[in-house]
Computed example of a mutant assay.
Amino acid sequence: MDLPVMPPVTPMLAKAAAKIPNDPGASAWSHEPKWDGFRAIIFRDGDEVVIGSRGGKDLGRYFPELVEAAREELPDRVVVDGEIGVQAVFDGVRRLSWDALSIRIHPAKSRVDMLAEQTPAMFIGFDALATRDKDLTKEPFSVRREALLEAIPGAGRCRVSRVTTDADLAQNWFSEFEGAGLDGVVSKRLDGLYVPGKREMIKVKHKRSADCVVIGYRVHKSGTGLGSMLLGLYADGELRMVGGAGAFSDAKRIELQKLLEPMRLDPDNVAEGEPSRWKEKGSAQWIPIRPELVVEVGYDQMEGPRFRHTVQFVRWRPDRDPESCGYEQLEVPLTYDLFDVLEGQD
C-alpha cells in the first residue's frame, strides 16, 4: 500500500458542547448528523483495503462485506473517514442498532462470515483524507467535502452523510434523526483542516435522565467492590431490566457494595443474565437484590426497551416509590427511517 496518507491514522475528534455553534461573524460551520457506530478510516490502494479503527486496529476482518464494498464502490486510491453502522428494524422503522453492531466483533471467522450475511454493515463517510496522489488533510473541509462526494457517489454499502450550514436546520435534525438511531449533531468549520487526534470538531449529544429501580449488581472484576449497578423499570406491573450504571471510583465501588450486599435476595446464589460483549466470560452473572432503592441516572437514548449504552449514576431518589418508576417517564424520540437521513442516496 502506497497512499499519500498511510495507516494508522488517529481520526480527528470532537469536543462536547451544550449547543450547536452559530457564532455571528465567525467562520462558517458545517453541521451533520452524529452517527453512533464504530469510527473507521478506509484506506484503499487498488485491491489492498485497510479499515482502521480509532485505536489503529484493522476492522476489515470483522467486516469483510465492507472490504468488498470498498473495492467495488470506492476509487482505486482513496482514504475516507466515517462510521460503521448496522441497521435493524424497530416497529417497522429502520434504525442503527448498537446491539447488532456490537456482536459483529467476534473471534471466530465462521461467525464473522455468518453475521456479514445476516447483519451486513454500511459505511457512512463524512470526511476525505486523500484521493489519488493528493493529501487532503491540509485542505479546508469545504474542499474535502467535495472530494468525499466524488469518492462515494452512489447508494451502495458506502454512503455519505448529509450536511448543512443552517444551524436551525441542524437543530431540527438533532431532534428528528434520533428516531433513526443517531446520537446528535457534529459541527466542523468549513475552513478547518483535518487534524488527526485533535478535538477540532464540536459535538452536541442527547442527554436525559430517568429514575430507575436498582435490581442487582455485578462484583468488580478485581473481586472487590461493585462493578456495575443493574437497573429496572416497571411495565404492566412487571419489573424489567433496562441496563446498568458503571464507572465508579474505587471508594464508591466499596461503598456501594456495602450498601447493596445486605439486600441480596439469596446470599448463596447469583443470577445469570445477558453477558457483556466486551468483557470476559462470566460477566453475565449478577446478584439480585430487593427492589427497594431508586436512583436517578443520566442516559443518551434507548434501543428498544433498554438503554443503548451504560448510563451514569446521578443521585439517589429516596423520595420515589419503586413502583412509580415506569417507561412512561422516558422521552420517546420521533420515528425517523435511517435511509431518510441519507438524503438523496437511495
Rank of each mutant, 00 (worst) to 15 (best):
K205I: 06
L96T: 07
K281C: 10
F174S: 08
V112F: 07
L190I: 03
P11F: 04
A121T: 02
V270E: 04
K252F: 14
V214K: 00
F63M: 00
S27V: 10
F63K: 06
R208D: 12
P64K: 00
W316Y: 07
R94P: 04
P322F: 05
D127T: 08
D340R: 14
K198A: 11
M201R: 04
F38S: 11
T131Q: 13
V219E: 01
S209D: 14
L338F: 15
D321P: 00
E65I: 12
D127A: 05
E296W: 01
P196F: 04
G237S: 05
A284L: 09
V341F: 10
R157C: 12
K34G: 06
A69F: 11
P318C: 05
A70I: 05
L169H: 10
Q257D: 07
M263C: 00
M302E: 08
L169D: 08
G92F: 07
V143F: 13
F248L: 11
V219Q: 03
V341L: 12
V297E: 06
V186F: 09
L190K: 13
E331I: 08
L74C: 06
E343P: 10
L233A: 07
M114T: 05
Y62G: 08
V242G: 01
V86E: 02
P318M: 00
D2V: 13
D340A: 13
L231R: 06
R104P: 04
R162S: 13
G52N: 05
Q118F: 13
E272L: 15
V332E: 13
V195E: 15
P305C: 02
W286M: 00
R111M: 11
W29C: 02
V89A: 12
S209R: 05
P4E: 15
P8S: 15
M12W: 14
V78N: 04
S53G: 13
G56C: 08
V311I: 14
D191Y: 11
D23T: 12
P8D: 15
D266E: 07
V311F: 05
D236I: 06
K57V: 14
A17S: 15
D268L: 10
S110R: 07
L13H: 11
E200L: 11
S209L: 02
G156P: 10
L293I: 09
A128Q: 03
K15A: 15
Y336I: 13
L96K: 04
R71E: 00
N172H: 15
D300T: 14
I289W: 06
E200K: 09
D99Y: 10
T165G: 12
P11M: 09
I20W: 07
E83I: 09
R308S: 02
D2F: 10
F38L: 14
H31C: 10
P333M: 04
K252Q: 08
R290E: 11
R162G: 15
A170H: 01
G37N: 02
L338R: 12
T165K: 00
